[in-house]
Amino acid sequence: MAGYTQSDFVSYYLLLAFVQQMTSVWVIYELAYDIRHGDLSIKLLHPLNPLHDYLSTNLADKIMRPVVLVPLALIAWLIFPTIHYDVTLLNLVLFGAALAAAWLIRFLSQYILGLLAFWVSDSMALNDMWFALSEMLGGMIAPLALFPPNVTAVANWLPFRFMLSFPVEIVSGRLTPTDLADGFAAMLFWVVVSVILYRWVWRRGIRQFSAFGA
């Protein structure tokens, strides 16, 4: 199908599952709980931005996850010996960078949605929408290259690609050097946007929080 063999699909989805596991984020649930139960107050008493607290909880999980994931990946490789990736040192470095960026964009976008709980009572509904979009446009239902060309053209620049499929594309060997350069530029753009947006929402949110109750 459109240049994708069965083993291409298996290779794609296996690594996609790995990326999804390694970038998993649940901070919105923690934030929503802390805001509703007033536990955020306790974090705000410390001379440290609470973001660090949530980030380190998530990072601790990311250190432990490979312990389970790597053996599973080896088993999958035994079952599907046709799995293949374009493994070069450069690709591995780029994969690592893209994976870290995917995690950061995911984390910050969910954190920003979670902070909306300062204004709306249920931020979780927004998160469900965001999640559905990122499944659809992040390469979960199908590799983005298999979408109609004009959809692919747009999806290639949206943040969802850089939250999931971009690292996989790097080691699939299907990207030209120009595609790679464009991809990294767009990825960097979304990282910067997430950071700026986070700072903006946090500053306003904390004022809202302290003005209307804690």
Binding site: R207, S210, A211, A214
Partner: peptide, 29 residues
């Protein structure tokens, strides 16, 4: 909560150790 910087006063002022609590300066916290 106002004195420990968790809440903004609606009006009036609070100062503790020379700091304004709602500014939530690290040195204060």
């Amino acid at each position: 909560k106002v004195l420990s910087g968790l809440l903004y006063p609606t009006s009036g002022s609070a100062r503790v150790l020379g700091f304004t609590p709602s500014e939530r300066r690290k040195e204060y916290l």
